[in-house]
Amino acid sequence: MHILWDFDGTLFDTYPAYTNILSQVLGDTENKQEIYEKLKISYSHAISYYNISNDQEEKIKNLKKKLPPHEIKPFNGVEAILKYANKNVIMTHKHRDGVEAILKYYGWDPYFVDIVTIDDGFPRKPDSLAYLYLHKKHKIDLVIGDRELDLLPAKELGIATCIFQSDSNVADYRLQDYSEFFNTTISLAT
C-alpha cells in the first residue's frame, strides 16, 4: 500500500501548539476552542477570520519556527501504519525544514520516500497538482488527512481517501483512532 499523508492534524497533533501561538498573538480574549476549530478548517481561514495583520502573521510564523519538535506529538498508532505501508509520502503546506526536523526528532524520516511542501511551489490544497505529481511518481493507493481539504485532490484523481478524527462526505473511510486501521477494510485496499 502506498499512502499519501497530510502532516498537521494527521501524522502529528500540531493544532494544540498552533492554537496556543494564535492565542498568544491575539491575546487571551479569544476562546482557545474557537481558535482550534478555525485552524482545523485551515490556517488561512483562521488568519482571515481573526483579521490577523501582516505583523501578527509574521509573529505567528516566527513563533511556529521556534516550536521545539518535542512539542509536536505524533498521534498514537500512526507509526504502525507507517511501518505497514510499502511507501509513505507527505504533502503539506508546512515548510520543508520544519517537517524534516520533526520527522528526524522522532526517527521517522526513513518511513517517507518523498515529501512535497509549500517550498516546492505547488498550488495550495485543494488544488490537485501536487497530488498528481506524487501519484504519477509513487502510484498512491490511499490519502489520509484530517480535513476535507486534504481529500478533495485525491477524489479528483480517483484515489481512495480516509478522514482522520473528523467527518467528510467525500471520505471513503473514517478513522477516529489509528488503532482502528487494521480492523477496517483500509488495510486490505491495494
Results as ranks from 00 to 15, higher is better:
123 P>Y: 02
111 Y>C: 04
149 L>W: 13
116 V>F: 08
144 I>R: 05
118 I>W: 10
157 L>P: 09
143 V>M: 12
153 P>F: 02
160 A>G: 00
142 L>H: 12
126 P>G: 05
150 D>K: 12
152 L>C: 09
144 I>T: 08
133 Y>Q: 02
144 I>D: 04
114 D>W: 01
127 D>Q: 08
127 D>F: 10
121 G>I: 07
115 I>S: 01
152 L>W: 07
149 L>T: 15
133 Y>F: 13
131 Y>P: 01
131 Y>K: 01
134 L>V: 12
150 D>C: 13
167 D>M: 11
144 I>A: 14
120 D>G: 08
117 T>M: 03
122 F>C: 09
136 K>E: 13
153 P>Q: 02
172 D>G: 12
133 Y>E: 06
164 F>K: 03
117 T>D: 04
108 W>M: 15
112 F>A: 04
160 A>L: 14
141 D>H: 13
129 L>H: 05
110 P>E: 14
132 L>W: 00
164 F>H: 01
111 Y>A: 06
142 L>K: 12
121 G>P: 08
138 H>G: 03
151 L>T: 10
131 Y>R: 01
140 I>P: 02
155 K>T: 11
124 R>H: 13
168 S>G: 04
134 L>C: 09
152 L>Y: 12
114 D>M: 01
133 Y>H: 15
139 K>G: 01
122 F>K: 04
107 G>I: 07
117 T>L: 05
126 P>L: 08
109 D>Y: 06
129 L>G: 00
110 P>M: 06
172 D>H: 14
165 Q>R: 15
150 D>P: 10
148 E>A: 09
127 D>I: 03
165 Q>S: 09
169 N>A: 10
149 L>R: 15
130 A>P: 10
150 D>R: 11
161 T>R: 09
163 I>E: 03
159 I>C: 09
117 T>Y: 06
157 L>T: 03
128 S>K: 14
163 I>C: 05
129 L>T: 12
167 D>H: 11
154 A>Q: 08
129 L>N: 10
114 D>C: 01
